[in-house]
Design a protein around this nucleic acid. Sequence first.
DNA 1: GCCAACGTTGGC
DNA 2: GCCAACGTTGGC
Length: 141
Amino acid sequence: MAATKRHWLIKQEPDTFSWDDFVKAGEAQWDGVRNYQARNNLRAMRKGDLAFYYHSGTGREIVGVAEVLREAYPDPTATGGDWSCVDFKPVKALKRPVSLTEIKADKRLENLLLVRHSRLSVMPMEAAEFEMILKLAASRL
DNA sequence: GCCAACGTTGGC
DNA sequence: GCCAACGTTGGC
């Protein structure tokens, strides 16, 4: 019946909009994406899908889990072109952040687009990879 | 349609 | 602050 949930990772510079800002806001319109691959990923998201919230630049770590609140709709901040945005709400912060260094050190996560394609800001990931990172976050460093 | 130049992102 | 990776643009 219900389609299998897909898993994602979204990046944000904490200096621009941190996880704490996100939690304070209660939800966020994920606009401003101007890359086709990232846009297509946004469009493939379904309500209820989960996404890791990653701090790029300062931090470079996964800090929390977000959920798709509203599926892709036209990005109101776009002045031209065919762009989309998605609304997310925070679900929970990870028990402890999982850093890029830690992810890179883990052979089982070597196929993550976060590692292979570092410039992509919205990316899919496997359910197994998602679970693995949740497990890392629940463990001691 | 190719490719050089340029801009942007993000890790280090 | 630097640089690699990558996307986009524009000349030919």
